[in-house]
Design a protein around this nucleic acid. Structure first.
Lengths: 258, 258
DNA sequence: ACAAAAGTGTTAACCGTACACCCATGA
DNA sequence: TCATGGGTGTACGGTTAACACTTTTGT
């Protein structure tokens, strides 16, 4: 799944010759979500020489499927494979072009260089386990950090719009598909799972009803261990039932309306 | 909304010089749905010099937003403006390229011509009123016809997959958004509306419950006229309440789960 | 008068929501 | 022992789904 350039190109070489490797006019943006200390986080990159931050993005090799490219991009920023990934929308505003609006033409590139042309970007969101990620900046960035989705700064281009739409899509998908396996550690407690749902949906849920519904889905396995160390009563630990979880991902949670 | 080439290009000119006007590597495919005689129809094009049929497709002008391009493409095949259109998925398989698989390189074009390169296509579906459409083939096609979605033949490239995914997306959208205004004539009967839903969902619905639910949505206006001419009891005519219908499209049908 | 489609109301099952008490643990 | 969070069951209400009879009209 991970594909690498023949050799590591310098930024300048990349800007000048990228179209030898990548399909021009096409980019991919990945909204990488994680969950930590009760917050929904998104992985952002601080662009060199610019005030703004941006989403994890990249390009598509000539012989690479779109989904593979998206997974590669997530891999390059997180070190993770086996990414849970969903394509949610394609953004094609003609203003998505370096040299238009605030986006500067990269130093030393020609105006007609492939990188300065109009790009259509295919938006994906990914769910990853926060603690397993070691954020890695790309060559255009000076930093790569988790940011609370509620505290996201001004992003380059239309990346704020893309993030908003990713969140919408994630919330909608929550109605039909389970969530958690990719965002929580292998063992977790019911209150932790509930906090995840509350955070994504941005609203409080009833503890007892949540408990009931989650169990009724048949995708949880109650472990005999309890979580030690916390103050107060020790909560039970759960894990997901691999097969049932996967089935729910494939077929959705709602049974066909008779 | 309708944009026209500086002059009408011949097919050969188009194949050779298209990249002077259109963003390379990007195409748009539109699954145009209509409803007639109790059947869900899709507008297909018979390709010249090939066995297969294909969906309505086209390319994006350098300065044209994606959605505008999609609406233009529907306009060019149907003559209609004010299209109800939804982007549903972007297909990017590297095999989407003339010269690979069954798709021939157009006669007289060079292998490295823009048209023979890999294309990423942005899938849309559109709902149009069957009776208002005058199907118009494009320059690559010998015919443009309505085909029952249940009788769709083998299509070029991955167009069968695109159609399948469009249908899925349409069915899902049916849960949250009203349908009918763009597929039915201005005045219609409740059984006609029900047949539309049954056809799209591919299952029978209960007549009385359907009637009740539709009225409860508050988007229908009962007219004083009845439909004449048919055998049997004359059904009432309805029309959609413009404002309520639009509101339902914008905000969805389901009220926020408390 | 008969066949075929349209119009209408009631009931039962289910699901979602609200809600209260007891238990375990660390401070 | 107290404060805090975790674990569990019940009751109500609204929505959905099942279902039968009457009306109209053309043949």
């Amino acid at each position: 799944m991970s594909k690498v350039l023949p050799k590591q190109l310098s930024i300048k070489e990349f800007y000048e010759k990228g179209d030898l490797f990548f399909v021009p006019h096409i980019s991919i943006d990945c909204v990488i979500f994680g969950f930590h200390t009760g917050q929904l986080k998104v992985l952002l990159l601080k662009l060199k020489d610019m005030k703004e931050w941006g989403l994890a993005g990249g390009f598509v090799f000539y012989d690479e499927p779109i989904e593979a490219a998206a997974k590669r991009i997530v891999f390059e920023r997180t070190g993770l494979t086996d990414i849970y990934l969903t394509q949610f929308y394609t953004f094609g505003d003609p203003s998505r072009q370096r040299g238009k609006g605030k986006l500067k033409i990269p130093q030393g590139t020609k105006r007609d260089s492939w990188i300065n042309q109009r790009f259509i970007t295919i938006g994906h969101w990914a769910l990853v386990e926060y603690s397993k990620v070691v954020p890695i900046p790309d060559q255009f960035s000076s930093a790569c950090e988790w940011v609370d989705v509620r505290k996201v700064p001004l992003l380059m281009l239309d990346h704020n719009t893309i993030l908003e739409k990713a969140l919408q899509s994630l919330r909608i998908s929550l109605n039909d598909y389970p969530i958690g396996k990719d965002l929580l550690p292998a063992k977790f407690t019911m209150p932790e799972l509930q906090r995840l749902y509350e955070t994504v949906l941005d609203k409080k849920l009833d503890r007892r009803n949540f408990h009931k519904r989650m169990l009724s889905l048949g995708i949880l396995k109650k472990l005999k261990e309890k979580k030690k160390g916390g103050a107060h009563k020790a909560p039970h630990l759960y894990s997901f039932e691999r097969r049932a979880y996967q089935k729910a991902l494939n077929h959705g949670l709602k049974l066909g309306t008779s």
